[in-house]
Design a binder for these strands. Sequence first.
DNA 1: CGAGTCATTGAAAAGATTCAATATGAGTGG
DNA 2: CCACTCATATTGAATCTTTTCAATGACTCG
Lengths: 230, 230
Amino acid sequence: MEHSDDREVRACTRCPVGIAAGVAERERCPFVPRKRAAGSVLHVAGDPVERVWFVKSGAVLVSRSIDEERVEGTPWAVRRAGSFLGLEGLVRPDHLDSARALTEVTLCSASLDTLGRWLDGRRAASRLLLEAVLRSGARERPFRGNIDGTAPQRTAAWLLENAPRASGQVTRRVLAGLLGMRPETLSRALRALASRGAIRHTRRMVEVVDRTRLWSVARRGRSGGERGAD
Amino acid sequence: MEHSDDREVRACTRCPVGIAAGVAERERCPFVPRKRAAGSVLHVAGDPVERVWFVKSGAVLVSRSIDEERVEGTPWAVRRAGSFLGLEGLVRPDHLDSARALTEVTLCSASLDTLGRWLDGRRAASRLLLEAVLRSGARERPFRGNIDGTAPQRTAAWLLENAPRASGQVTRRVLAGLLGMRPETLSRALRALASRGAIRHTRRMVEVVDRTRLWSVARRGRSGGERGAD
DNA sequence: CGAGTCATTGAAAAGATTCAATATGAGTGG
DNA sequence: CCACTCATATTGAATCTTTTCAATGACTCG
């Protein structure tokens, strides 16, 4: 009834990847878990893709390198439990982004070869990956720049959607990058929101106090108040 | 050996979807083709996802609506032959974006139900979609805002990568949206590039004259040290 | 030809970045 | 526990960039 590595098996039977791999039916999951410390660099843009990672817990920051020298360019997205890293290896040889652990993370990884065999062999596998990619794509669409609103507007919009997850893990610098602004600008934006009574913040947390007020800041788009007739 | 609708079948035997569907082996492709005129609105953000489209030819503009009223928000990506629209329907009920045909397009579409059955039944199907999504994800990462460089820098970077495809189909307004700037700003950016001899442009086309010069503009990041000639 | 849309230009204003100076908090070693 | 250090966050002021608004030029389609 119990396996020797019971804890791990039990975890995998709850993991979507494990389920798709058929761990419950004694199949082996191709992804093997490993912990990494906060701050570890998982890969750098331009490196050949050797492994694909599945985030089991924690948060990983994905950044796009602007020039090839820098390890860290502008933050692009935060990947949390349930999403994959390095899947671009299925369609191109090298990494598009750099990835760094924001918190301590548990990552399950598989080599690209192993993954390929698994996808060919297991019916549910591709479907699982497909849905994971679609889901993270849906969550990752950011707030590009001024065209999406001023700094306070974008900040407010982001907080409305991410306030719960946000507080501890995402530092100011990272959040600023995600929102396409400088840390200084984010500071000022937060102060503006706080002065309206929409949020309360210290330097390590942000708390939404009044969603309505936040909403009213976020919503008053660049285009004042008109409708898009035609 | 010949079907009655031979022309269509022959086309589908070259189409990746058709191949995955096994058209060559007399299977039916779940996606049925249809032409749409330039300018047609395919879906609007917030609408329930009913169909999934595959772009067989032409270009489709995907925009993100800022507020729910507007049909057209800020342009997000241009989808060309080989990519899908509406796949978010697999993981959520409603459309995230609005889509409008930029040129005359041939779209093959399938209802979400049909697609679901196809994915369950056909081995290669999910894998195909997975790779298509990864591919377009790789191509669609834009240039969010000022943090990725000034307007001329982003414009130069985009031209370096997209000059060939760009010329005819993408209007100024659309390109400006993709680059996260106003059309006026794009105009000025293009003029700046032209004044350096990097490009030549009229109001309906942009031609890259000197990639090296373009590169030197794009590359000198915000933190750049060197000034340009002139 | 004329109406309407799209692209360009100019000038003023709004907003963001930069640089420099503090402030805060975490971590370290005495 | 405390001083000390270091990295991160905030603030201020000057500068630079982008947007806005208004006007004009260019092209398309009836």
